[in-house]
Amino acid sequence: MIEISRHISFGQYVDNGSRLTRLDPRAKILCFALAVAAFTYISQFAALALCLFFCLFLQWLSRLPLRYVLQGMRMFISFLVILYAFQVLFYTSSTQATSVIWHWGVLTISWEGLMHSTQVDLRVIFLYYLTSLLMLTTSLVDLADGAEALLRPLRRLGLPVHELVMVFVIALKFVPLLITEVERLSIAQATRGVRFGRGNPWQRIRALSGIIVPLFMSGLQRVEMLSTAMEARCYRAGYRGWRRSKLHALQWAGADSLALACCLLLCGLLVALNFVSPF
């Protein structure tokens, strides 16, 4: 509990000049959206295997140490393992034609349950990996600029696109800060003798409330301070006639088109493979 930031890399950005880092954020966001849609759709192991190869290829392109990325996913995967156990044990088949491996009371381990839960959790891991990688290789400002450029047509419908993107970006920015805060609060509570992960469920919830309540309070205070600081630096969200300029110009290059084309091809392959593969 106390050294959480080591095990979560979500929301961090590493500028290592890799091909992925240099891609136009619009291309990255479009590829990400396509991949998420395809990964969510597929349900066969053959297609999942292709997803794994795709993730490995992205990992190679990103030039990030695999260990760093995996360490960042450790906590999420531990959480997923617990969920997996529940999914398997309480799996109820829609067809009733399950081959039961083990049964005790309400708990059942069936072949179908194992297969289904594995597929679901692998998809979730791949989706989490894609999201982490997008953030590890794209700065918040690039992400905001890319999202804003892609959503620009919605401005005609009266949607405050810039403000919505900024809210999203700031929410992402707060992830590592809140993780550090949880760490700080855990240490503070541990030094007062609070023991996390011990006792009955009620005692555990009570121990956690010592972190969650101050975390909310400090989160709200931080948001208020940040909005004041932004206003002090002439950030005028919603102010009529205000136009921000940008330090980085978005430039769509050949590599971006190639990335998008490859991603489209992969998504097509995934859907086709999912359709024809028996597993």
Partner: peptide, 9 residues
């Protein structure tokens, strides 16, 4: 500073 830094680079 954590309360006033808006971006991440």
């Amino acid at each position: 500073p954590d309360d006033q830094l808006v971006t991440n680079t």
